[in-house]
Amino acid sequence: MGQGDSGFAARVHRPVFRTAPHTATIDQVVKLAGGAFDTGQVPERVERTMRATGVETRSFVRPPEELFTRGAGPEYWDATADLLAGLAAEAATEALAAAGLAPGEVDALVVTSVTGWTMPGVDVRVIRLLGLRPTVRRLPVSTIGCAGGLYGLIRAREQVAAHPGSRVLVVAAEAFSTGFRPGDTGTPAMIYKALGGDGAAAVVVTGVADPRPGVAAVELSDPLELLIPGTEEHYRLTADHRNGQIGFTSTAEAPLAILSAAPALDAWRAERSPAPAFHVAHHGGPAILERTAQVLGCGRDGLRHSWDSLREHGNMTSVSVLDVLARTLDDPDGPAPGEEGVMLTIGPGVTVEAARLRRVPTA
């Protein structure tokens, strides 16, 4: 789509979210993570850092006792992809039913997942489980990380614009827990052991002239996609070459990256008035949320659904912002029909994705 197409809007229906089968509290995670230390306990300073994430509970694809002792090497990747595809198919079945669509009516499938290294990927599994047409247009996305929820919606919007009348299914399926390397006691590793969570979400995207009765929705338009120069090392995957286990790390500067995007975001927001009435943002972690609020010019209450999602489910990478969008649409005190908002995600690169939203009446 060219620059002149920025005003094109697609209808994004309320996302459906599924948690992974095993739940753990922060108390359990701190206790289990202590096994990596000679004392059998997480040092007090490290424990304070882990609890400062604000995450109270989250779900995992495997029992936490296994994740924090054996990790998730290549021998678990296929089983993890199967489980995530199952969760995604459950969410998608509900999302399609709410929209009054049969699986055979889906024209395009966008799947974002950075979990494991499997081929065929989660997208092929979802097609099989749902019974989608073998000719469905596929857009599998595997390296965009936490920015992926909105990235997938933007790609769906392009499908609707390029193929009028298309019905697009967007799926996010993530197991951050596959990046918990049990023996890694570095500060970033311990933070992400406290932050990471697993889950899946699905959302239907259609044209604005294709409303589905009774479904809460927003219109999405005017995307901004920005790769911040000089930030490639801020977030990255690592690997233990002895056992093939994947890890995730970041630099101390990483939470500050969104501040570098402020000029571009300010210019983009200034192109349209009025000021946003609501915000839907990926949380990442407390430091990122606080700086996101600073850049967006909204207080903590303006991102309350992001804070709630973080506390209850941890950072589920691309899944999280779809959970936040669902919470926003479910909020009885949330945006009224016609009110405009902003959606924002941040991921490795550092990548910033933004789009304008407009709450539409429930048909």
Rank of each mutant, 00 (worst) to 15 (best):
G4F: 10
A9E: 14
H13V: 02
H13W: 04
F17L: 12
F17A: 04
A20W: 12
H22N: 13
A24T: 12
I26T: 15
Q28S: 11
L32V: 06
A33M: 05
F37H: 12
D38G: 09
D38F: 02
D38L: 11
T39C: 05
Q41A: 15
V46N: 03
T53I: 11
V61Y: 03
R62T: 07
R62A: 12
E65H: 07
T69R: 13
R70A: 14
G73I: 04
P74G: 05
A81G: 10
D82T: 10
L87Q: 04
A89L: 08
E90P: 07
A95I: 09
A98N: 13
A98C: 08
A99G: 13
G104F: 08
D107I: 03
L109S: 00
L109Q: 00
V110N: 03
V110L: 07
T112G: 00
V114Q: 05
T115E: 08
T115P: 14
G116C: 15
G116N: 12
T118A: 05
M119T: 15
G121A: 08
V124A: 13
I127P: 00
L130K: 07
R133N: 08
R138K: 08
P140W: 00
T143R: 13
G145S: 14
G152K: 02
I154D: 09
R155Q: 12
P164K: 11
S166T: 15
V170H: 00
G183N: 05
T185P: 02
A189P: 02
M190N: 08
I191T: 13
G196I: 07
G197K: 00
G199N: 06
A202K: 04
T206A: 13
G207S: 14
V208R: 13
A209V: 08
V215G: 00
A217E: 03
A217T: 08
E219P: 02
P223L: 10
L226G: 11
L226M: 07
L227G: 01
T231I: 01
A239E: 14
Q245F: 01
I246G: 01
I246P: 02
P255E: 05
L256F: 13
P263E: 10
D266K: 11
P274G: 08
A275G: 09
H279S: 00
H279M: 00
P286T: 09
A287K: 15
L289N: 13
E290W: 00
R291F: 03
Q294C: 05
V295A: 03
L296P: 01
C298L: 04
D301R: 09
L303W: 00
R304D: 05
R304W: 01
T317I: 12
V319S: 04
S320T: 15
T328D: 06
A336R: 15
G338W: 01
E340R: 15
E340N: 03
L344S: 04
V352H: 02
E353S: 06
A354W: 03
A355G: 13
R356C: 02
